[in-house]
Write a protein that binds this DNA or RNA. Structure first.
Lengths: 131, 131
DNA sequence: TATTGACCTTATACTTACTATAAGGTTTAC
DNA sequence: GTAAACCTTATAGTAAGTATAAGGTCAATA
């Protein structure tokens, strides 16, 4: 299977697939006589795994750990559980930060006249002295 | 005022301040005889503005626009309002994405035994064929 | 006075996770 | 036969800094 077909099947871009290979995230597939990459089921599955893990928000390095756990028949599910628990905490923190930003901006929005005059609570707030 | 004092007053790192200067986000301050940057009130205020705008989630380029609006006495508050409205929408989208991720991961977490066995719903999910 | 430590300066490389570009070789369809 | 659509590599760009190296300066102490 050629790289573009793998791209279609996994949902990854061909460039992303080459990139993952370049950083040794996935094994280098064998090559055809003309130099083209020839993927087998295993390579395709690894890439599909990566696609999903990335969509779940795992970083490349976390994906590296997940791939290793996947490949390890002696893994302990608690390791995976720990990794994911931490990720959920990260996401929660991130959500709280974004909500705080949104709240502040929304409060300022209602105070901004939204007209042709220069006065604007948002600009004033940003220009304020001190925190 | 020297750069480290400006850093303390604005909450920005001295390196970040130099970086902002290097990308022409802020004006270059005059120099002392020894080559040290010497900041005046105006420079300090610009940097304080930037600090807050960045904390509100605006990108460097958005900050560029906000700084220009701030400096422009003929600005129309509706321009600022538009920028901020869009930012709030971005934040909302982002929050929704994170919540979706969190939901999926949380659902998988309760299905993962969290013990010494290799079986794990999370790994299985990632390894699944098809979306 | 010498030296130590805390500053300041610049230039360059690293980070994350790709994406874009250039410059070229190959395959396929008409 | 040739043009489009692939494939290859190497290199540079993106965002927003952070880290490092290599050096100059300043203030306090021994």
């Amino acid at each position: 299977m050629k790289i573009s077909d793998v791209a279609k099947r996994t949902g990854l871009d061909a460039k992303t697939i080459r990139y993952y290979e370049s950083i040794d995230l996935v094994d280098s597939p064998p090559r055809r006589e003309n130099g083209y990459r020839e993927y087998g089921e295993q390579g395709i599955q690894q890439l599909g795994f990566l696609r999903k893990a990335r969509k779940f928000g795992f970083s490349i390095n976390e994906c590296r750990a997940l791939l290793a756990l996947w490949a390890n028949p002696n893994r302990r599910s608690t390791e995976v559980h720990g990794l994911v628990t931490e990720k959920v905490r990260d996401i929660d923190t991130h959500i709280l930060e974004l909500k705080a930003m949104k709240k502040m901006l929304s409060e300022l929005l209602v105070q901004c006249p939204d007209d042709d005059n220069p006065n604007c609570a948002i600009i004033s707030k940003l220009a304020e002295e001190q925190e």
